[in-house]
């Protein structure tokens, strides 16, 4: 019995059905909890493939931070459940959309099938990563040596995000000044 493939089947089924219920559920709260399920399934997939750092960060960042933000905003807006949320469109538009979707699906399937006979360009095979101290160590060393400049740049991105979010969420008073 191959446990890795079995776990892959379980996690991918959870991910796909969770993603479908994110899109199709009418209530935003149900969508948010389906999204949590998808994030956990993705963390499982990362762990299966050996990306342990990404799996841990997926749970910390996505289910820990981003989902809390989403649930807070849903709570803050306190809206009633919309009855007919789906967009209505004409028959011609639906035909064009179906054609575009078929084209996109063909391109994606072609790419996935071609990925089976890619020749590896790097040297870091599974055994070599284990010999060098595991995925976490290898990724961290690459992040803080070759790519440290990009890592520092993300701090500017986060600072900009914080400043712009505060500026957006600031409530204007009736006199025109900001409080």
């Amino acid at each position: 019995m191959n446990l890795g493939f079995f776990a892959f089947c379980v996690f991918s089924t959870i991910a796909i059905f969770g993603a479908l219920s994110v899109v199709l559920k009418k209530n935003p709260v149900s969508s948010a909890f389906a999204l949590v399920m998808v994030f956990f399934a993705f963390a499982g997939l990362y762990a299966l493939i050996g990306a342990h750092l990404i799996a841990a960060l997926q749970i910390l960042v996505y289910t820990g931070a981003i989902m809390v933000l989403f649930v807070f905003v849903i709570m803050l807006l306190n809206q009633d459940t919309p009855v007919n949320d789906l967009k209505e469109s004409s028959g011609l538009f639906k035909g064009v959309a179906a054609l575009a979707l078929a084209g996109l699906a063909m391109i994606l399937i072609h790419t996935v099938l071609r990925a089976q006979d890619i020749v590896a360009v790097g040297q870091l095979t599974e055994e070599k990563i284990t010999a060098q101290g595991g995925n976490l160590r290898v990724v961290s060393e690459a992040l803080f040596s070759d790519h440290v400049f990009h890592f520092e740049l993300t701090s500017f991105l986060l600072l900009g995000a914080i400043v712009s979010t505060v500026a957006l969420a600031k409530r204007k008073t009736a006199l025109g000044g900001e409080s």
């Binding site: 870091l124 690459a142 990009h150």
Partner: peptide, 11 residues
């Protein structure tokens, strides 16, 4: 990143 035996995909 796994297919190519690289670590840049993780980053």
């Amino acid at each position: 990143s796994r297919i190519h035996h690289l670590v840049e995909g993780d980053l």
